[in-house]
Design a protein around this nucleic acid. Structure first.
Lengths: 213, 213
DNA sequence: TTGATAATACGTGGATACAAAAATACTTTC
DNA sequence: GAAAGTATTTTTGTATCCACGTATTATCAA
């Protein structure tokens, strides 16, 4: 249970949006959602505002709340931003990367691989976990937060990508290369590898999105 | 006038926070603020949520809204993030930088200089404008938005810095160097110069903040 | 005097009520 | 039959009200 109704509404909606249960452009009616989770529309409204700041919905005065979608351009843009932020994160994480950490990353990579082969869309979550654990070692709270916010926004598209055509064929090698770069101990090098990894993913994903909105 | 009361409350509070009219740790009472601008608590509460997402205030369940402050560590972190984001922005802006754009930047630099010498704290605004105009040429809406959000968060500290001791002595050369890098036409080079410019500013500013919170 | 505890005042979160705006359906007119 | 204007319905935005949680102060015991 969450402390406040607003928090509950926020989590409920964020989860639904991440899972792609609502389609871009779809209108979210406060009363309906309030009824679903048993509260008034007030806390739902407040949750809307937070979701709007996250970029998950769009809020227009007197016109309600619609589910946000990403155009291909916006998708690329987010990957560009991710590339420099996560690049920075690995660079800063480097001093704290030891044999133990590398082992953890290998394990996460294995779990990701297994989830991928079983066809479960857990792959998306495992993938986030992999990137997230590396970023966590940067010990930069705001940086970590911003990166994870970007992962949330692209999550629905990652799911579509994964479900449509078990793409992560090259994923294993890509991520193994990142681990190898981490093992090198060279922060700048690892930063570059991470940047290229992320930028390389964007066009693959964009294929499956098509000109939306 | 703004369309909604929430918008008005948001602008009012953001402005006050940017100008440093409220001190970190200070508690904001919805009722007081609502009275000030002639509305009920409700739209003010909603404005609080947006400000919290911006990182300008902290909202704790049942404990109200307090003005956020930055520790020195957080200040450095923000400058690290700015360095890679604005670095990316200049790199992407490079193809669109022509003689006309360079001239505009020179002009902005002059205006910044003049504001600096007159002692007016317009300097902070001009400085934002200078960085903002460069970033704008990247034509990446989300990137621009994120960068400008970071400028907002550090604005109060920039003002303290400026007011306390007309620092921007080296500023003129620093920013002139950025323009020179833009003139070179080399995106990677300009990115690096921008990164170093931003990272170089952080310790100067940190001096004047001291261990807050 | 100090520390714990109870009483009280204050502030927050949420629900309901009301007003204003937008969307929709319905005429009316050409 | 189409377009424009009008009325109705729906939905959003704001205000007010109430219940609960938190902080403060007062009271009392050690």
């Amino acid at each position: 249970m969450s402390a406040t109704a607003e928090e509950e509404a926020y989590r409920h909606l964020q989860r639904a949006l991440r899972l792609g249960r609502y389609k871009p452009g779809e209108r979210l009616i406060p009363e309906e959602i309030a009824a679903e989770i048993g509260m008034s529309r007030m806390p739902v409204r407040e949750a809307f505002r937070r979701l709007a700041s996250d970029g998950l919905v769009v809020l227009r005065p007197n016109r309600g709340c619609v589910v946000a979608g990403l155009t291909v351009d916006e998708l690329y843009e987010i990957f560009e931003i991710r590339s420099v932020l996560e690049g920075l994160a690995v660079r800063l994480a480097m001093p704290r990367i030891d044999e133990e950490a590398l082992e953890e990353f290998e394990n996460l990579l294995d779990r990701m691989e297994r989830a991928g082969q079983s066809g479960s869309s857990d792959w998306v979550v495992r993938h986030q976990e992999f990137h997230g654990r590396i970023c966590a070692l940067s010990r930069r709270p705001k940086l970590i937060h911003q990166i994870s916010a970007l992962h949330v926004v692209i999550e629905p598209y990652m799911r579509i990508w994964f479900d449509d055509a078990h793409k992560p064929l090259s994923a294993r090698e890509e991520h193994a290369a990142v681990i190898a770069a981490l093992r090198s101990g060279d922060g700048r090098h690892a930063e570059e590898v991470m940047q290229n990894h992320i930028l390389g993913t964007a066009p693959l994903l964009a294929e499956f999105v098509g000109p939306s909105r």
